[in-house]
Design a protein around this nucleic acid. Sequence first.
DNA 1: TAGATTGTTAATCGATTAACAATC
DNA 2: TAGATTGTTAATCGATTAACAATC
Lengths: 209, 209
Amino acid sequence: MRKERISDAVIHRLPRYYRHLNDLYSKGVVRISSSSLGAKMDITASQIRQDLSCFGEFGQQGYGYNVSELRAEIGHILGIDHGHRLIVIGAGHLGHALLQNFDFQAVGFQVDSAFDVSPDLIGTEIRGVAIRSMDELADYVAAFRPEVAVLTVPQDQAQPLAARLIDMGIRGFWNFTNVELSTDVPGVFFEDVHFVDTLLTLSYRISRQ
Amino acid sequence: MRKERISDAVIHRLPRYYRHLNDLYSKGVVRISSSSLGAKMDITASQIRQDLSCFGEFGQQGYGYNVSELRAEIGHILGIDHGHRLIVIGAGHLGHALLQNFDFQAVGFQVDSAFDVSPDLIGTEIRGVAIRSMDELADYVAAFRPEVAVLTVPQDQAQPLAARLIDMGIRGFWNFTNVELSTDVPGVFFEDVHFVDTLLTLSYRISRQ
DNA sequence: TAGATTGTTAATCGATTAACAATC
DNA sequence: TAGATTGTTAATCGATTAACAATC
């Protein structure tokens, strides 16, 4: 039974399902039951079946789920087949690390340009991605209409830059600065990657016994 | 009323409280009520008071909370005053970015060494942190007994490396590789920073209207 | 057919919110 | 003192788990 409103709890489990199914797929596993997937992921079979039922019926009684099929379905739910265009703003160490290591294509994002203010970087290329001047940003966005921007810029620039980008039509922010971005423009989404939060959670855990 | 068992939901909100209190503190705000903090953080005042009550009584009726005091209390709860020692394993782009940009000291971690296999990197220094050969790892850990390791190594090395480090006595992992680490040794904690999960969440959101 | 496993409904559990007496 | 706001108890809401008929 498809659900109207999907809870955040479910949404946040989807990428993890996708990751585990990818893993099974790459190992050549053909079918899996909710109970064995649950064992692998350390969650209940019930939860898996409940979660999936929000989006459709992907299994078969007595058999379980076809790994390749379910992987494709969840990928589709996550929108990896939309071919979203993405730009990277800030090509310092972190931006560079992402461009160098992160497989944007594998999750359906197309990147061909990053932007920075440093004359040393402008004109260079990282893994086929051109680093352009921030002066070109507006023209580029107007011409190629990317939907998502990755922000790896200094903290104090993040919010005003986001505001500018929203005006230009950017609808998603993968934000690596340590500020929480916001807007009153509807249909704009932020994913803040707060490194410090996860390290503090770890600190909390190792600090008590 | 202090709680026995603190739920994960509460634990995961603590770093965010800390971040916001830090922000208020740096702006010179002296006191804040649960309702104005709630407005700033977009959660209910009730939730804030419930969360804090797991750890003690930090407010005052009719007044609210002293920002500096509450910040210190939450910092203490998170263990930022433990002076945990930390090492970085892998000094590629991401490791480099972290060493260059991330303020470990501000959250109470001491770092003086990173480890890598690349001869080009071994012997160099990033922001005062020495990059050493992986061959020195065992001796270093035995001598200085760091508690936390940051993993920014290739995927296939992550799990065996973690096993080795656990044997050496490492109890916390800040894991940037795209694999979920595990162990049956008790008292060892993992914080996986799965970049791809947050980007997929963003993808999900921008993909439906 | 018999066994396995689904999707879904119902039961349980836990987390969030509301209410309020206590008190600064 | 009067107003504000806490910490906590009780009420509500939502998420997780259990159970099971349906069926491959």
